[in-house]
Write a protein that binds this DNA or RNA. Structure first.
Lengths: 137, 137
DNA sequence: GTATTTGCAAAGTGTTTGCAGAATA
DNA sequence: TATTCTGCAAACACTTTGCAAATAC
């Protein structure tokens, strides 16, 4: 890792807008949603730029990325350091972080005993939150 | 579930071919791979039909479905009953089932205490298997 | 004989890339 | 000024759908 490119990363209004819009979102949003939201705001940003900005943020660990049911990527600015998992509402998209230490330890143990190296894990929990649950039935 | 459509599901050579090809695969395969494999075999099946057959198999619980890093769906005939998770080699695609009871219980507890209903979980473990690990470095 | 299934082609989705012009440092 | 960034349009990969012909029951 000695020759790692420093990633110049210039400051541009578009990138700032993406970060700001991301910060305004309580929950996970897709690149498309973010792009649409920025389009209505004063500072429109191209879809391509949104994707590129999100890639950089992902690479630098500033956003968490999950996949919804269709495989679409959803992004959220990371609040706490380290690994975090979420429970997503399938209906409204609301997310809440969950205590995943059990899973972390489990994944570590699998990595240690499986003969595999560089074991990574993805955990996605989805459900229907109280607000979205139909009262009847 | 009283009014569930019986799903006529006629017996066709194409569907049988998909199932057979799926059975021949030790590991997860994508619909595209399956289609390509069938194309080289004597009994070619249209890509559309492969997708539809896989959907039916998924609906009837005969295959497990995971997503690879790019969001592509991978299918594998289910051997054991119930829920099963796998550790996939990022390099060669080899899979091995892992003991996920810990995670199952964890997901259940989350479901019970979160206020969410119908909580489902997806767990994907990826790593590099012993055969694919470069010996040097 | 009738309803299902097939498979081609085309549409649809989310994402990535090529490239000329604009903007940053 | 030199390099990076932007953003449109087109390319891409995977998946789904429309519809006429073939097929299973």
């Amino acid at each position: 890792m000695t020759g790692a490119k420093p990633s110049p990363t210039r400051n541009t209004p578009q990138r700032a807008a993406v970060l700001r819009a991301l910060g305004n979102c309580q929950d996970f949003v897709s690149a498309q949603m973010l792009h649409a939201r920025l389009a209505t705001a004063d500072c429109a940003v191209g879809l391509t730029t949104v994707y590129r900005a999100l890639h950089q943020l992902q690479a630098s660990g500033q956003v968490d990325v999950v996949r919804d049911g269709t495989g679409e990527r959803l992004y959220r600015r990371r609040s706490t350091a380290g690994h975090q998992h979420y429970l997503l509402c399938r209906d409204c998209g609301q997310s809440r972080p969950v205590d995943s230490r059990v899973v972390e330890r489990w994944a570590e143990r699998i990595g240690a005993t499986s003969g595999f190296t560089d074991v990574e894990h993805t955990v996605e929990l989805t459900g229907v939150c109280g607000r979205c649950r139909p009262t009847a039935h």
